[in-house]
Simulated assay, not measured.
Amino acid sequence: MEQVIANARTDANKGREASSLEGWQHGGKWFSYGGHAIFSRMAGHGEPLVLIHGFPTASWDWSRVWPMLAQQHNVLTIDMLGFGFSDKPVAYPYSIEDQADLLQGWIEGLGLASVHLMAHDYGCSVTQELMAREQEGVLQFGIASVCFLNGALFPEVHNPLLIQKLLNSRLGGLISRGLTRRTFERNFRRLFGSQNPPDHQDLEDFWQLLTYNNGRGILHHLIQFMEERRCHRNRWVGALQNARQPMRLISGTSDPVSGAAMARRYRELISEADVVSLRNVGHYPHFECPWDVFSAYRDFRKRAQ
């Protein structure tokens, strides 16, 4: 099943009603994971919906769709270790598996028997690992449904930007520490669709999140997830193919990294693939066109009942 939503740039889609980055931080709480402070946010009522962000950003990515989701769900999210307002230790073995440990421990610590997951980019890999664990019977909670947004679910069709390739090379440490705001903005803009590019304040917010707690200094460590995706490809793709819960992929087709090609591969490998394509939308559909993403997710949940 495929649906196509043509995106129109409107004030509602830009989500100007979302809170400021400062307000987002003040509305959160921290908890400890291995002695490191992890930023979290919760809002709303209903069935638990856990939002898992991407690289190199943070839970702030969800800020524009957050108020809509919180009207119908108990929405929970964190900044994973090394991201956003959470701690960013330098000498740390960052990995998708460790981030899955973090999410698993947090959800189990909250005593939630079942959760719905919505994940973007890096968060999609974390979700695939959690799905594999559920299938192995090692989670103390169930995963009721999964919604993916523009993630490298299949590494063979992932098309990283040059800056990402350099960060993942032997020069990664130098590139990471020497990253300038101008370079960041030039590359970050490339990820967005032409109709909804980030404005000056958006770029200021994303840069602040990236550089908070010396975040530039660990980008080359975080980006090792690209190697993890290749190493764990069979396990993580198998988790999708063996999934027992409803799944939907919401794909911004103008994404140069994991857009249209990733959606085509999803249809090829996933039985009865449920894909919603968002035209003229890039890598951050939930930030570029929050109303379209909310509408597609609301429809998904209704169909899954």
Rank of each mutant, 00 (worst) to 15 (best):
Y33F: 12
S86E: 05
F55T: 02
E185C: 05
L191I: 00
S169D: 05
L139R: 12
H73C: 01
N214G: 12
V275T: 13
I107E: 01
N74A: 05
S271E: 11
K302E: 13
W62L: 03
L179Y: 08
P89R: 02
F225D: 09
S86T: 11
R279M: 14
L222K: 09
V257S: 12
S254V: 12
R133N: 08
S86I: 11
T183Y: 00
A6G: 09
G178C: 04
W24F: 05
T127I: 02
A37D: 14
N168Y: 07
L49V: 07
T253N: 09
A239V: 11
D255T: 03
L166S: 09
I96Y: 03
S20G: 12
L166Y: 00
G44H: 06
V126K: 04
V126N: 07
L240K: 10
G142I: 13
P285K: 04
R64H: 02
P93D: 10
N196W: 04
N196Y: 07
P56Y: 04
V90D: 10
N234E: 15
D61Y: 04
A58E: 04
E136L: 02
K29P: 01
R16G: 03
K165A: 13
N187Q: 09
G193P: 02
D79W: 10
R64C: 03
Q140Y: 10
S277A: 14
I218D: 03
Y266L: 10
K14E: 14
I163K: 11
Q195I: 15
Y94I: 06
S95Y: 07
K29H: 12
S169P: 04
S32R: 10
N280K: 11
W236A: 07
M262R: 08
D87M: 07
L130G: 03
S295D: 13
F225T: 05
D255R: 01
F148E: 07
A239G: 09
T10D: 10
G123H: 00
A91M: 14
E228L: 08
Q104A: 15
V75P: 13
L81H: 10
V75A: 06
A144P: 02
M1H: 10
G173Q: 13
P67W: 03
Q224D: 04
H26L: 14
Q208G: 00
L81T: 09
G151F: 06
E288L: 06
V157I: 14
N13Q: 11
R264G: 09
E185Y: 01
R190A: 01
Y94G: 06
W30S: 14
H73K: 13
E47W: 14
R9G: 07
G109T: 08
A132T: 04
P56C: 13
L240P: 03
